[in-house]
Amino acid sequence: MTIGKHLRGCALGAALLPGAVSAQTIITPEAFLDAAVGKTLTFYEIRSGGLVGTEQFLNRSVSVWREEGQGCVYGQITTPNGQICFLYDNDPDGIPVCWWPFLHEGRLMVRLASFAEGEIQEVRTMTERGLNCPGAPLS
């Protein structure tokens, strides 16, 4: 199932996806979470095409992030000001990393919510498989 088709069936509704999506369509963090909770998403850096990492959305407030070759890191999810933010257990400065989710030509993307760095990542897969991380909360 493609990401766009999955989101069409979620709370985004027909207003955001009336057919072929052209340009960029902002997605609310709530709609993003409606699609992501209970799923595991892979994120790729749009410019290089390289895998950034994989994130399992355990519920609307907790996720598990794993970079390639690294261990699991748990994150607290918040949704301030139209952004989806993650504060991970291993974050040394205690400042959440925030993203703006959007659709571009039917592809789910996130843009770093920092004007200094405009990193964009694409969600290439959304599966039911977990990351099998130790100590993961069940809900």
Rank of each mutant, 00 (worst) to 15 (best):
G69K: 06
N132Q: 13
E45K: 10
L131P: 01
I95G: 04
V97F: 05
I27V: 11
V21A: 03
Y88K: 15
G106C: 06
A23W: 07
E68P: 02
R66M: 15
V64A: 09
S48A: 13
P134W: 14
M109K: 01
Y74N: 03
G9C: 03
I95K: 12
T2E: 04
P137G: 00
S48L: 03
R107L: 09
M1I: 14
L33G: 02
G82I: 01
Q121K: 13
F115S: 12
I26L: 09
T78G: 09
I3G: 00
F115C: 11
T40G: 00
G82H: 02
L103N: 02
L108I: 03
P137I: 12
R47Y: 08
P80Y: 11
T42Q: 10
G106N: 08
L112F: 15
M126I: 07
V62A: 08
I46A: 14
S48C: 05
E68R: 05
L41I: 09
E128Y: 11
S61W: 03
D89I: 13
M1Q: 07
I3V: 14
P18M: 02
I120A: 15
L33C: 03
T25A: 05
V73I: 13
A14G: 10
Y74V: 11
G4K: 12
L58P: 03
F115R: 11
P96F: 02
I3T: 15
L51Y: 02
G75T: 01
T42K: 12
A14K: 05
V52F: 05
E122S: 06
I3L: 12
D34G: 09
R60G: 13
G38R: 11
Q121M: 08
R124H: 12
C85A: 14
I120N: 08
A31P: 03
A20Q: 05
T2P: 11
T42F: 06
Y88D: 14
G130W: 10
E122D: 07
S63C: 04
G106Y: 00
C72D: 00
F32N: 00
K39V: 05
A116K: 12
P137F: 15
R111F: 06
S48R: 04
G38V: 08
H104G: 00
V37D: 06
V21E: 08
Q70T: 07
T125N: 14
L112A: 13
G4R: 12
G19M: 02
V52W: 11
L33A: 06
M1W: 08
